[in-house]
Amino acid sequence: MGAQRVQLFATCLADLVFPEAAADAEVLLRQAGFEVEIPRGQVCCGQPAFNSGHRRAARRVARTFARSFSRSAPVVLPSGSCATMVVRYLPELLGIEPYDAWELSAFLDARGAAVPRLNEGRTVAYHDSCHMLRELRVHHQPRRLLERSGADVLMLPRPDLCCGFGGTFSVRQPELSVAMADDKLAGADAVGAEALVTADPGCLMHLSGRAARTTGLPVVHLASALARGIGPHA
């Protein structure tokens, strides 16, 4: 019997801005014994337009997902919010049957994937992204995987509080968005984390962009933290 196949949806943000995170997700899936297919023609789930209320634009882009992915194997995404888009909103938006789609850590955890112990003795804080926490109800899984990688996972003060990214919110209300990021980064500093880990490229782009201007705290995608360790290369 051959290895079970999964389809990796890199997501646009990881493809364009954090390609190493998508590559790390692929590595983790292969290490866990899956055959990873990366369907050609994949683009974006349409979320930027959908969350701004532009459903026609969102539908146009989301159709690329339906054209690229088959239902013959689970779809895995290194993004909590894109996974939410695919699981919760796409069926209604496109009038299609739901896909068997998973956020990466939820998938690895459910399949009992082994994780290399690359973070022995390191302390990290994990940032819950809102969609992943409240829509997908995925919160233990990424922490469990980080712990299995040897990391000491610290609890952020108010881990449920949004980091302020919120898609176009980040540019419609930049002052508020940045103030919310500051609270999140201050929380990570307060608990003494060496790095802040998140499973969402949106939060990652926002928090790392703010940290680069302020505290310098490394903000790392979960897939990278698991596949290559949190640093110093992170």
Partner: peptide, 9 residues
């Protein structure tokens, strides 16, 4: 309607 990050809290 845009005065929210849609976090769902």
């Amino acid at each position: 309607p845009h005065a929210s990050s849609l976090c769902g809290a």
